[in-house]
């Protein structure tokens, strides 16, 4: 099912360049961005923070039976990446095979096409990660 245009549009900054949020009361970083700090609640103050896109592999697996729209890319490595800012995100790892990857491998954010709605539909872009060699 196609994502609504408004949701796609609203999420462009976080998807294109990992724009997250930080609570300046407790210094907690959040991704996806939050409007309220779950720790500080009403005492918290949230502001946008640009994550660097650098991190390391926390865990990973290989997807052999992909969801619709990702068939051409299978098999591909899918990972939980711990960013340098402490936040964990899930994303595809590009241009590698499972044997290239280790827990703790250093990765960096790359910009890739994520999905396309149909031949005449919208193209969705966003972050994936690549091994730093």
């Amino acid at each position: 099912m196609e994502e609504s245009l408004a949701i796609t549009w609203r999420r462009i900054p976080e998807r294109y360049r990992l724009l997250g949020t930080r609570c300046i009361t407790c210094n907690g970083n959040y991704f996806p961005p939050r409007k309220i700090c779950p720790k500080c609640r009403r005492k918290g103050k949230i502001e946008n923070v640009q994550f660097t896109g650098k991190g390391k592999i926390y865990s990973f697996t290989t997807i052999f039976a992909p969801p619709s729209g990702f068939e051409l890319e299978a098999p591909y490595v899918f990972a939980i990446v711990e960013l340098d800012e402490g936040v964990r995100v899930t994303a595809q790892l590009v241009d590698c095979r499972e044997e290239d990857v280790k827990i703790g491998s250093i990765v960096r954010m790359v910009f890739r096409r994520i999905a396309e709605d149909s031949d005449e539909g919208l193209l969705h872009y966003g972050f994936k990660f690549a091994l730093v060699r």
């Binding site: 051409l72 241009d95 910009f111 096409r113 994936k128």
Partner: peptide, 16 residues
Amino acid sequence: PGIDEDAATLAVEAAR
């Protein structure tokens, strides 16, 4: 190009 790469993704990497 990779399967998920196009002229826009290449441009972003060069721009960064």
